[in-house]
Write a protein that binds this DNA or RNA. Structure first.
Lengths: 149, 149
DNA sequence: CACCAATGCATTGCATGCAATTTAATTGAG
DNA sequence: CTCAATTAAATTGCATGCAATGCATTGGTG
């Protein structure tokens, strides 16, 4: 690849990931609209359906998001009646996020979603598997909770 | 994969793409800060370095962004002196985006960036190649400029 | 025990993304 | 030519993301 090709848009993995991420979100939108939630709220619920009663910090580690994003988002989920935000009496710095009844029940409605999306991607099981593995490897490699020189 | 596993965060390609995209942006940030631009401004410049003098519409098709995102972003790039926004005299609905001298010269500074980032990803050439191909396939499959039933 | 650094969350400010609407220019049917 | 439909940008409103900062609680030290 010559000097000029290096900077071409279609040669950038970063751009492919960036564009894919937004296009995937658009695929989800109509379904999530019906459920009354946004994409970020959806992945937050995915995390909670898997492990309820997390602190904001733990949720942030799981989702790679910080309190600046999560606090307002969780307040909206609380206003929508899907989660509760409870300050931990044993350590009042922690706020624990717990699913409400409606929050738990929404899982049922979401269970068909991944299948519908995957079929829309037109990827074979193998392709999807391989892509997923590559992304996870990349994620592991670049995510540095604390930077060292 | 049973019914419960289907909704696990780590089984969602969508989440892997979403998280990867944001982590990659963070990798770029320190370098782009030095250049005085943001990540979205960077990919916009990538597109323009490859093909100068595009309309907003064409730029949007290239970047999968709409005028709602591009108009303010291009105004910032114009304020920074990197591009010009010129209404096409032949069809005044079109606004053409052209690189200025400084905008062209910034390409030099950017040319080392992809290499530095790729090395930070820790992926082999093969892995990167395969990942990129998978993402492009996915992008082609899901991007529908106009929806059909 | 008093104090201070560390921790967890909230807030602020800025830059996206994108749907929906508006505005201005152009095109095309009659 | 005339006016309605189409098209390209711009604008508006809402929801992220994230760095930087603020604030309250807690833990460790002397």
């Amino acid at each position: 690849m010559n000097r000029d090709d290096i900077l071409k848009l279609d040669n950038q993995i970063c751009f492919a990931v960036y564009a894919c991420s937004r296009e995937i979100t658009k695929l989800y939108r109509p379904y999530l609209d019906e459920m009354g939630i946004t994409y970020t709220q959806y992945v937050t619920l995915l995390a909670l359906w898997e492990e309820d009663d997390m602190t904001v910090k733990r949720l942030g580690e799981r989702l790679y998001l910080d309190s600046g994003t999560l606090t307002p988002l969780l307040k909206k989920l609380e206003a929508a009646g899907l989660v509760e935000r409870i300050r931990d009496p044993r350590d009042e710095r922690n706020v624990r996020i717990r699913l409400t009844g409606p929050g738990v029940r929404l899982k049922e409605q979401a269970s068909g979603l991944p299948g519908r999306i995957v079929s829309r991607t037109g990827l074979s099981g193998e392709q999807a598997q391989s892509l997923h593995a590559g992304l996870n490897a990349l994620l592991r490699n670049i995510h540095q909770p604390t930077r060292e020189e």
